[in-house]
């Protein structure tokens, strides 16, 4: 092949540019740590990165909201523990005063305490977390129980997403646990009746109240375990979401991040290639008849 000057210069330029380009590419990858910056760098990986990042955000959001739900359930559990203690006290009183050895006066003296327990129950049932009532179903701003012990909330259970597309319960229905909705015992009415029975020295009424409070305690225990189960589910969801995040982040890193070792050796290789190109270019271009005779034509 006949080699002309322009050919030599063109090729010198081309090879130097190509070697510089690959060195720059290796340098970019190494310094940014990213293998995929533009979709064109690796279309499949770029698409997957977008999708996995969305997954990570989704997992994060699920973990965050599940954590908030757990906090709320903890408050609910605390409230239920307090109510269990109150009901136990009422239950103790019922056992005590169902004994025929107590007279009308003694029984009547205990009535105000039962009245207080009733009022404390109402106060606890109206617990608010972050400005909303936790025992009113979906009706955040409705005070669930009035002074007479009537329920004004609804029967919905609050639900949140615990895994993509899966909903889990995050609330406990006090309409069931306390008001006996769906075939249980109305504990609040039982407390009221107990108070009346004590005032009226009604031994039968006290015995009925004792039985109702017994059931009420069981209802409360059931509600607490259901809340605990929900908490467990949510904790599992949080762990799963966190594990999912870790896994997805790992996948993203595999897809997107530079393999430092490979990139370093590529950079070294590109550096050598560029150096070699520059050396060769210098040597090739220095060969000319023009320089053979001190810069003048060889005559």
């Amino acid at each position: 092949m006949r080699v002309t000057d322009r050919l030599r210069f063109q090729n010198a330029q081309l090879y130097t540019t190509t070697a510089s380009e690959s060195m720059q590419a290796a340098f970019d990858q190494l310094s940014s740590g990213l293998r995929v910056v533009q979709p064109g760098d690796d279309p499949i990986a770029a698409g997957l990165i977008v999708s996995y990042k969305a997954q990570v955000s989704r997992m994060q959001a699920i973990a965050d909201s599940a954590q908030r739900a757990v906090d709320e359930l903890d408050s609910a559990d605390g409230a239920m523990a307090t109510m269990t203690n109150m009901l136990s006290r009422a239950h103790d009183l019922a056992i005590q005063f169902s004994n025929g050895s107590y007279g009308a006066e003694e029984r009547a003296s205990a009535a105000p305490e039962v009245g207080q327990i009733f009022e404390q129950m109402i106060a606890v049932l109206n617990t608010q977390v972050a400005g909303r009532f936790i025992f009113s179903g979906d009706l955040d701003t409705t005070t669930p129980f009035d002074g007479a012990g009537l329920y004004h909330g609804d029967d919905n259970t609050r639900q949140i997403e615990i895994a993509p597309g899966v909903l889990g319960s995050t609330s406990v229905s006090m309409n069931v646990a306390v008001k006996g909705f769906g075939g249980g015992t109305d504990v609040l009415t039982a407390l009221q009746n107990f108070q009346t029975a004590l005032t009226n020295n009604d031994a039968t009424g006290i015995a009925t109240a004792l039985s109702s409070l017994d059931t009420g305690l069981r209802q409360m225990t059931t509600a607490r375990s259901s809340g605990g189960a929900s908490t467990n589910t949510l904790q599992t969801a949080i762990s799963a979401a966190q594990a999912g995040q870790v896994n997805n982040n790992k996948t993203i890193s595999n897809l997107q991040d530079t393999d430092i070792v490979a990139a370093t050796s590529r950079l070294a290789l590109a550096q050598h290639a560029l150096q070699a190109t520059l050396d060769a270019t210098q040597r090739t271009l220095s060969l000319s008849l023009l320089t053979a005779n001190g810069g003048g034509p060889a005559l």
Partner: peptide, 27 residues
């Protein structure tokens, strides 16, 4: 670009994260 700040996939995820947080306490 998958890493562009404020790109569509990030803001889309942020939208759903905000909706989830709101579902906890809509008031």
């Amino acid at each position: 670009n998958p890493d562009q700040v404020g790109n569509l996939s990030n803001t889309l995820s942020a939208f759903y994260a905000a909706a989830r947080a709101l579902s906890q306490n809509p008031g």
